[in-house]
């Protein structure tokens, strides 16, 4: 009689080894980082006390300041986010069409589109804002363009993927009627990507509201300017009303987006 002498194992040896290799690299990176990072331990122990002190100075919230400066800046922030999201479409839609395998079959087109999409996403919106502030000067225009160019990568990538998932049946039917390229795009692709399109735009708008609130820190308009001014003047009670306004607007934006998505999709 022969005995079965192998144990059941969840992973193969190769899987195990590669997993342990990842863990090992991570731990080594962690140890190396902790040894070389420059952190002053006294600051760390001191942190809770300093935080408490900061929140103390923020209290009571200076509600009167809302009418003085916060309200207009908040409206401006919302405008930057919305207009930026709309301007994104000018760049994102052509790039999405170019990157989709259904529509364009040129390899070069895919590569070029991908390059633009990835570089847009890799540069943070604050860095985009810095660039545009040095081009257009401080103000709203830099904020709108920063939001727009930062969103191109996100919107373009997701829209391209949505176009890739379109059912080709109706497209072929349209082609068989001899429809022009533009009609195929408008009557074949567009109705099918419509729900995905609106959901992507709404999602990005929600993110852009958060991002546009901080662009002012580098001079690109909106509530961030008020925030950084108050902070530089050590007016902590004004800082707290600005933070409260940002908090409220972000929550409301999220609720609005969730509600519209529920109705629409």
């Amino acid at each position: 009689m022969t005995t079965i002498d192998h144990h059941w194992q969840r992973f193969t040896l190769k899987q195990k080894l590669s997993r342990y290799a990842v863990y090992l690299v991570l731990i080594m990176a962690m140890v190396q980082s902790i040894q070389s990072v420059e952190v002053i331990p006294e600051f760390f122990y001191d942190a809770p006390e300093q935080m408490a002190d900061m929140f103390n100075r923020m209290w009571p919230i200076d509600f009167a300041y809302y009418q003085v400066a916060v309200h207009d800046a908040m409206i401006e922030t919302l405008n930057i986010a919305t207009l930026g999201t709309l301007v994104t479409l000018i760049f994102a839609v052509p790039l999405a069409l170019m990157s989709s395998h259904n529509i364009s079959s040129s390899r070069w087109g895919h590569w070029i589109a991908k390059f633009f999409l990835v570089s847009s996403r890799s540069v943070n919106s604050l860095v985009w804002a810095l660039l545009f502030v040095s081009i257009f000067g401080p103000g709203v225009i830099a904020g709108v363009l920063a939001i727009a160019l930062r969103s191109v990568g996100f919107v373009g990538k997701l829209l391209g993927e949505a176009i890739d998932e379109v059912h080709m049946g109706s497209i072929e039917a349209l082609k068989a009627t001899g429809a022009s390229w533009m009609s195929i795009l408008l009557k074949g692709y567009w109705p099918q990507v419509l729900p995905a399109f609106f959901s992507i735009i709404l999602f990005r708008w929600d993110i852009n509201v958060r991002e546009s609130a901080v662009l002012g820190l580098v001079g690109a308009g909106g509530i961030g300017v008020v925030l950084s001014d108050s902070m530089n003047l050590f007016e902590w009670q004004q800082v707290s009303i600005a933070l409260l306004a940002i908090f409220a607007v972000v929550i409301v934006a999220e609720i609005v987006v969730v509600q519209i998505r529920k109705r629409l999709i």
Binding site: V37, V39, D46, Q50, L243
Partner: peptide, 19 residues
């Protein structure tokens, strides 16, 4: 809150730097 706003608060409370 956006990471930048959190970063500002932490910079004010634990000082400039990696921490």
């Amino acid at each position: 809150f956006h990471p930048v706003i959190i970063a500002i608060l932490f910079v004010k409370s634990v000082g400039f730097g990696a921490l």
